[in-house]
Design a protein around this nucleic acid. Sequence first.
RNA 1: CGGGACGUGGCGCAGCUUGGUAGCGCGCAGCGUUCGGGACGCUGAGGUCGCGGGUUCAAAUCCCGCCGUCCCGACCA
Length: 568
Amino acid sequence: MRLSTLFAPTLRDDPAEADVASHRLLLRAAFVRKVAAGVYTTLPLGVRTMDKIVRIVRQEMDDAGAQQIRMPIVLPAEPWKRTGRWQVYGDEAFKLADRHGREMLLGPTQEEVVAPLVAAENPSYRDLPLNLYQVEWKYRDERRPRFGLLRGREFLMKDAYSFDRDEEGLRESYRIMFESYRRVFDRCGLDYVIVEADPGSIGGDVNHEFMAVADVGEDLFVRCGNGDYLADTEAATPRPPDPASEALEPMVEVDTPGAATIDLVASQLGVPPERTLKNILFDIDGGTVAVLVPGDREVSEKKLARLHFPAVVRRFDDDDFAAHGFAKGYVGPQGFGEDVTVFADLSVRGGANWVTGANRADTHVTGANLDRNFRVDRWEDLVEIREGDRCPLDGGPIEIGRSIVVGHIFQLGVRYSAPLDATFQDEDGTQKPLVMGCYGIGISRVMAAVVEQYHDEGGIRWPKALAPFEVVVILANADEEAVGSHAERIYGELRERGVEVALDDRAERAGAKFADADLIGYPVQVVVGKKGLQRGEAEFKLRSTGQRSAAPLEAAADAAVALLAESP
RNA sequence: CGGGACGUGGCGCAGCUUGGUAGCGCGCAGCGUUCGGGACGCUGAGGUCGCGGGUUCAAAUCCCGCCGUCCCGACCA
């Protein structure tokens, strides 16, 4: 490729709209341009890099026995209503209507399409396992798109779907994908961790996230200092405290005027917040659920929603408090009737003599105790994990890190196949729901995540597997005829060797070419100019380290290939 | 959706407080001098000042409404 004809308008200044490194550099280096918030055009350099990621993914998927298909983006609403996700996705789905008023949506993921596709062929157990994947644009109307490609409303995703006859088969399909994902992210050069995660609106049970470690990451992961535990913060379970062994005090009411928050109660009564019992009320599909946690902890709505999937979990608002007659800020579990389902976090078992609301404004109680004063219907892990918690495996210290989720895999089971009636005929002749798994990789997000991990002040430092070109030959003094002919020769030789090479033959000054080469991030730069020519040499720069070297002009192509081999 | 900021040639910004014919740097076009880490001189093109309404003799500037973008939060494979 001759850069004189490439559409790659690099920017000298940082765009005002871009804050994080990947966003800034992908704009400046002419990989993408913004069209609307979270919606981008991909320029030629970006297409080349994204295609490389896709190629890696495709190779690994094909090696793992998956087969590529292509499903539509514009989808009818009906199957989404059957699985409950028309509601679960809510406004996050791009919904539209056709000219007849039929409801449709732009695909945010594709379980509702692929399951009926397979089931329509009335498969036999002999046809299983089956794994189908595609690489297509996905649409999610994020409340707040941000960080450029890291959270777009339109993004390129590889999504694969496995079909098995039973759970055992699913586990094997899942294992194969798990290993395949490892190879994909290894080949992309990413530093990543694999954690157990929250399944979000996809649903299902076992799932893992592949998280690229990055300071700008939106997703937190927790790690045990002893190295034996890794999890998404949304799914991580802290080790509950040991049970209390203090003598039970009588329950008494105390006046706490105006103390409608935990902090106010704690300071008025002179007790630490963790001795208070917080009662958070939710409306879940019309029913009332109370969640009890120690006053210093936050309820994880994620975990609560997961227990009730696909029902919509909604925190009580002022109207709900009024309608149910609860005193906001003064709710206590001793007042709950049978119409309230009482959930408690496991950590509540560790406390006694709680301070909690008296179900009357400006009043609390002390000495509230489990069983004697209140009941719990279900014990679950329902708190947000935090720094300082203990590892559930060995009690070690928990650390929290930031990351970008680049891949997420799920064991779905029959969560979609059952409501969609997607069945196969088993050996015993009966129809059974297909046992499914699904497996996603955010291609465009991988590109951004790699930039987050591979950049410096000068620009991007692509690993060679993803660079738009592996080598750039820089014509440093275009007016010297000998320089031009050597550069052309080296460029041609590299092409003959199958190296992906760009020739910077633009009518720019050398300095601008060097700056652009660093910005765009070609792993190897070959400089052909007057200076080296006098010594009969071409000069080289390895972008990853900045290390410079030289070789005779005649051997320049060989030297570039050798240097490329050294590049990450 | 709550909070905050911003919107002025392709990019980065000033001008707005105190209303009076729209500026700077980069980039772009032409000519010349340059030519190894984003050169210099001269000449030039390019702007409904986000959109709509209002106040005023006069609005980029003041007022109202809307739209868009970014940041924090909530939310989110």
